[in-house]
Amino acid sequence: MNEDVIIDSDSRQRDIWPQMREEATRAAAGEPVLASYFHNTVLRHKSLDDALAYQLASVLDHSALTATSLQEVIAGALRADPQISRCMQADICAWYDRDPACDQYLTPFLYFKGFHALQSHRVAHWLWSEGRHTLALYIQSRVSEQFAVDIHPAARFGCGIMIDHATGLVVGETCVVEDDVSILHSVTLGGSGSGGGDRHPKIGRGVMIGAGAKVLGPVRISEGVKIAAGSLVLRDVPAHATVAGVPARIVGRSAAAPAYTMDQTLDSEE
């Protein structure tokens, strides 16, 4: 795989910012006690990027690095790398399309810690790639503390990622997650020993990883795989297989892109 994750999600790109502003306006009118909240997080900002910088800085605020300073860092990353914004918008669409509890584009942006953790990681990854490892690790630490999500800044994510619930997610340094992947809570994409080098999983497009699953070592999870909840994966998995168990074994065929259907059962393979 190339050093940079290949992104081809532009075909699914939507202009969601006007809709998010409409949703915020309706929410403020419907719950006046939160009107200032919707104004500060959405309505007073000129762009979705500006709103994201404010939102992430607010949730990661700490005396060691204030929200004002963090907002400048995040805004700088968004200006320097437009791919962060493209992926962020595709992530919002992924939640909207795949999560039946998400009936507005605004919902993950404001309330879902999986979204906040992922976008914070995208900024930390940019910092890491710029050689600013200390600040990247600081953001990783704050994300872990705030959201119970621990993603190494060097790990690489594509677009259209949904991290549902997110609590307990661990992603190692050399992990790569391609486009259109869905990951549930308590998942580990980790190493299998103390050796260095390439030691973490590579997750293909359209994969769904069920709650509590552990994928360990430099294994390749090919396109369209479904990993059942609670499974332990220690070997490569071929495309469009469903695997389950400890250790995991192939138990069926998956849909074209299980990440979209979010079907957790094992008795409905195509």
Rank of each mutant, 00 (worst) to 15 (best):
V5A: 15
I6R: 13
D8L: 15
D8P: 11
S9M: 14
D10L: 14
W17G: 03
M20F: 11
R21I: 02
E22I: 03
T25E: 08
A28Q: 09
A29Q: 13
A29H: 14
P32R: 12
V42M: 14
H45V: 06
H45D: 09
L48C: 08
Y54L: 07
Q55P: 10
Q55I: 11
S63N: 05
A64G: 12
T66P: 00
T66G: 03
A67D: 01
R79H: 08
A80D: 13
M88R: 05
A90W: 01
D97K: 11
P100K: 06
L106M: 12
P108M: 07
F109L: 13
L110H: 12
F115S: 01
F115K: 02
H116T: 00
A117H: 05
V123F: 00
H133P: 00
L135H: 09
R142S: 01
V149W: 06
V149M: 10
A155I: 12
R156Y: 12
T167R: 12
L169E: 07
V171C: 10
V171R: 03
V176P: 04
D180Q: 14
V181F: 05
V181K: 01
S182M: 02
I183H: 00
H185E: 05
L189W: 00
L189R: 02
H200F: 07
G204S: 11
V207I: 12
I209F: 02
G212Q: 03
A213T: 02
A213V: 03
P218W: 10
S222K: 12
G224V: 10
G224I: 07
G224N: 11
K226H: 14
I227L: 09
G230W: 08
G230R: 11
G230T: 08
V233Y: 12
R235W: 10
R235G: 10
P238E: 07
T242K: 05
P247H: 03
P247S: 11
V251C: 09
A259D: 09
L266A: 11
S268E: 15
